[in-house]
């Protein structure tokens, strides 16, 4: 009964993603066979983890609103936990951190209820004002600015930004005749991840001049532009199936996702470089931590959301 309600375009989208992953699995197995002397374990592991990510995403998107909000809320929780485990925190702030965690279920409740007004101001205003107050009650002033600054930045990135993905699912389906309620989220995530891959592939094959040598020495101008234009082309191609965007609007969305995805990626790289770690965690074998996978989405999700919200909702 579930598949009957799914728009045809969504079914095709998932079939397409499964096909892409099959190709990736076959390629990685073939590479290993062709050149047994080289070690492709990380690649194999990476592809295997991709299957799990897509399975979780399918559960998050396809079942119903409550399941979607819970799964995406748990993803925010894991990301925020990873962030807090990575950064230095003060012993005195134990209870403050607990309050910060509580912001996650509340934020996702606004999403579930479709309460746009609170969804959009809860973390930037209420949590922003409440946490420093709670910190003051404890009275530890040494390192206060650093503690509250890092805490709120983490909430904005891991909870506020990412919760925009969930809110896409509760936008009115009738505004998007092609893709229904889940079309734009699939569109966003697919383009963001493809943009990552495309930037990597263009950079590997043509890249010379480094774009942000101090933060991410492997990123090049060729990779950046190649990725942005590939993503924009794909955005125009997919838009009529999954979104209400016109061709020009879709071009804009593709450029936005391409550029923002890059910025999100290097922002998390800067964080990791500052802390002196290579990966943000070890939750996703072959990828690193969960933030390593969500990095681009922390930028593309809110930006693309407000772009399409302004134009069509």
């Amino acid at each position: 009964m579930m598949s009957i309600n799914l728009p045809l375009s969504v079914q095709i989208a998932f079939a397409g993603i499964a096909l892409l992953l099959c190709i990736a699995s076959c390629l990685s197995i073939m590479l290993q066979r062709r050149r047994p002397e080289r070690n492709y374990n990380e690649l194999r592991q990476r592809v295997r983890t991709w299957w799990i990510i897509v399975a979780v995403f399918a559960v998050a998107v396809l079942i119903n609103r409550t399941t979607s909000v819970i799964v995406l809320g748990l993803i925010s929780f894991l990301a925020f936990k990873e962030y807090l485990s990575l950064i230095p925190t003060r012993r005195a702030d134990h209870r403050v951190l607990f309050w910060a965690y509580l912001a996650i279920p509340v934020q996702y409740y606004w999403v579930w209820a479709g309460w746009y007004g609170l969804f959009i101001i809860f973390i930037p205003i209420y949590v922003f004002l409440w946490l420093p107050m709670r910190m003051l009650l404890i009275g530890e002033t040494q390192g206060f600015l650093r503690a509250i600054g890092t805490l709120h930045w983490g909430l904005m990135i891991c909870v506020f930004s990412l919760s925009h993905m969930a809110f896409m699912l509760v936008l009115p389906a009738e505004n998007n005749p092609g893709g229904g309620s889940m079309g734009i989220l699939i569109y966003l995530i697919f383009l963001t991840e493809i943009n990552d891959v495309a930037q990597y592939l263009w950079g590997k094959s043509l890249g010379k001049r480094k774009i942000v040598p101090k933060v991410s020495p492997n990123k090049t101008f060729a990779g950046f532009w190649g990725g942005v234009f590939s993503t924009a082309a794909l955005a125009v191609l997919l838009a009529p199936w999954l979104t209400p965007l016109t061709r020009i609007e879709a071009l804009g969305a593709g450029l936005l996702i391409g550029v923002a995805g890059f910025v999100g990626d290097v922002t998390i790289s800067a964080l990791k470089r500052d802390l002196g770690v290579k990966d943000s965690g070890s939750l996703l074998p072959g990828h690193g931590g969960i933030l390593d996978r969500l990095d681009s989405l922390t930028y593309t999700a809110p930006l693309f959301f407000h772009y399409i919200y302004f134009l069509h909702y």
Partner: peptide
């Protein structure tokens, strides 16, 4: 272990 230690104070 490569996790950050507690900050002083």
């Amino acid at each position: 272990a490569d996790k950050p230690r507690f900050e002083e104070g």
